[in-house]
Amino acid sequence: MSDRVQISEAVASGEGLQGMVADWSSDKDTFKNVPWGKAMMWVFLLSDTFIFGSFLIGYMSVRMSTVVPWPNPSEVFALNIGGTDFPLILIAIMTFILISSSGTMAMAVNYGYQRNRKRTAMLMFITAAFGLSFVGLQAFEWTKLIVEEGVRPWSNPMGAPQFGSIFFMITGFHGLHVSIGVIYLTIIGRKVLRGDYDRRDDYQSVEIAGLYWHFVDLVWVFIFAFFYLW
């Protein structure tokens, strides 16, 4: 195969560096085969990445420079079930719930491609229900921390006072994303059920909502690792 053939194949498929350069220099729309709504959701998610990234970097800075020991999240978030203390068990359950919701969302997108109206809508509603239970557990977690443990944004009995401000800011902002996601999925799921996208023969709204939802799960992966496990 000659070099020229290889290059033109890369250009056509958008593969590799050559394909990327070809797409960017094509004097047409850069993101080929990507509907504008999807491209814009990706750009929004990129900006959100920087917001959460900055939050986590702020957390790193205070944790590295505080003179007071950081509270041990493993103990702070332990839950007593039947007389035994399980470290971090509530957070683990929340993690599994969010991952399950990502799985159902991925399947909803897949059934959307297959134009399966009922299954798509059903899986989206299941995803929203998982999201709702996540927010419910988070409300329980916050209540326990505020009422029983006495954690405040400015102080807590376990150690470094920044623990509270970081915790409420990061998990609060993430919980807000989940809550908005639940509303978003419910709205899109209702439209699916109503047949809006069948009339248009276009299910990309489902995929775009899916991107948002997977991103919320993605952010949790980082929060779980850096805030709860570190």
């Binding site: 958008g14 593969e15 990327m20 797409d23 850069t30 491209a39």
Partner: peptide, 20 residues
């Protein structure tokens, strides 16, 4: 895994993969 499979980045063209 989430980005490449669930968010379909694996199957996107290089132009948007790089941009994001």
């Amino acid at each position: 895994l989430i980005i490449s499979v669930f968010m379909h980045m694996k199957w996107e063209r290089m132009a948007i993969r790089g941009a994001i």
